[in-house]
């Protein structure tokens, strides 16, 4: 992301060992993350098993006959002792096998592979819009502190974080799709055609992007204000450096460090927001799949989608960590 709005790469002091060290650091972080991911998976597995009556009863409903419930349980392996089920589940999970849907009997991993691009497009698109608009807004409001641009920016960003994404989505849909016919109202588009893909992505991504802009601009503003008070910024000014040089070479880079660390957290907010945005715009992504799994009481599908969601939250946090280590040369790789 540092190469998107602001190219900072030329300011990073690099040496020949750096990349190798970063890779080693990444591997170590990954090993550290795996137990937590395992705990998440275990938590979801056992939580799903405490559904009243068990997942098969839930899926078939209370009017189902005893035989049909037994049959489904047998077919899905839900009749075995819970620890055996858990062991098999973990083994399958390691092989990328997430089991079969209780409703459609299709492999869930296929469904997820089909839905995932819609959700990733949305999350990444939203984040790009948030970064493109959030960072400049944050800088401007910090530099014009307590002046009109700051007031306007702060009020707007408060409006942004107070707006539920599904409500903002409905407003945008009503205005830009229903009234002005600029964008399609519903659907995810054809993934193989870039234009259709982007055309259908625009409104949902804008919805999440506006909210992300609010979050990111607030973060950049406050860390920029912190940095502008630092001694090295004052020194740079005192030695007669041009205002622009002080801001971009000295202040901004240091202000972005804390911002990058929280982008992982924001990514988690984005993933949560994507669920509702997908419902509003009928995007056939993971969020929609999750809500349908809840409605159909397909607990095996629900379990899988939630695990995939958390895995992505972990992945984004890992990427954030690595970005952090690249833009902040002070970090130690222990």
């Amino acid at each position: 992301m540092s190469n998107g709005a602001l190219d900072l790469s030329d300011q990073v002091p690099r040496n020949d060992f750096k990349e190798e060290v970063v890779i080693k650091y990444a591997i170590r972080r990954m090993i550290f993350v795996l137990p937590t991911l395992w705990a998440v998976v275990t938590f979801v597995f056992f939580l799903i098993r405490i559904v009243p009556g068990g997942p098969a009863v839930a899926a078939l409903g209370s009017y189902a006959t005893e035989e049909s419930i037994r049959a489904l349980e047998k077919q899905m392996g839900l009749d075995e002792p819970i620890l055996v089920q858990y062991g098999k589940f973990l083994m399958n999970l390691c092989q990328g096998n997430l089991g079969k849907s209780l409703i459609t009997n299709k492999p869930i991993s296929q469904e997820i592979a089909r839905a995932l691009p819609y959700t990733l497009d949305l999350a990444i698109g939203g984040m790009i819009i948030g970064i493109l608009f959030g960072i400049p807004t944050g800088i401007i409001t910090a530099l014009r502190r307590n002046r009109p641009p700051d007031y306007i920016g702060r009020i707007l960003s408060l409006v942004g974080i107070s707006m539920p994404e599904f409500y903002l989505g409905i407003l945008l849909m009503y205005l830009l799709a229903i009234k002005l016919h600029l964008f399609p109202v519903l659907g995810g588009g054809d993934l193989s055609h870039l234009s259709s893909r982007l055309y259908h992505l625009f409104l949902p991504a804008l919805t999440l992007g506006i909210i992300m802009t609010a979050f990111i601009s607030r973060m950049v503003r406050s860390s920029m204000l912190n940095v502008l008070r630092e001694d090295y910024v004052r020194t740079a000014k005192a030695k007669g450096l041009h205002e622009r040089a002080v801001i971009y070479k000295h202040a901004l880079r240091n202000a972005l460090i804390p911002t990058v660390t929280v982008i992982g957290i924001y990514m988690s907010i984005l993933m949560g927001g994507s669920v509702l945005t997908e419902i509003i715009f009928s995007r056939p992504g993971l969020g929609k799949m999750m809500v349908f799994a809840v409605k159909d009481r397909d607990y095996i599908a629900l379990q899988s989608v939630i695990i995939i969601f958390s895995a992505f939250v972990f992945l984004f946090n890992l990427i954030t960590d690595l970005l952090y280590s690249i833009i902040d040369p002070r970090i130690e790789y222990h």
């Binding site: 991911l37 705990a39 799903i48 405490i50 988690s268 949560g272």
Partner: peptide, 21 residues
């Protein structure tokens, strides 16, 4: 560890999971 595990769920999704159960 507890915080790490539960923070890996977006709030809406953890809420959805608990309510689904």
């Amino acid at each position: 560890r507890f915080i790490d595990i539960f923070m890996s769920f977006p709030i809406v999704i953890l809420g959805l999971l608990v309510l689904a159960i």
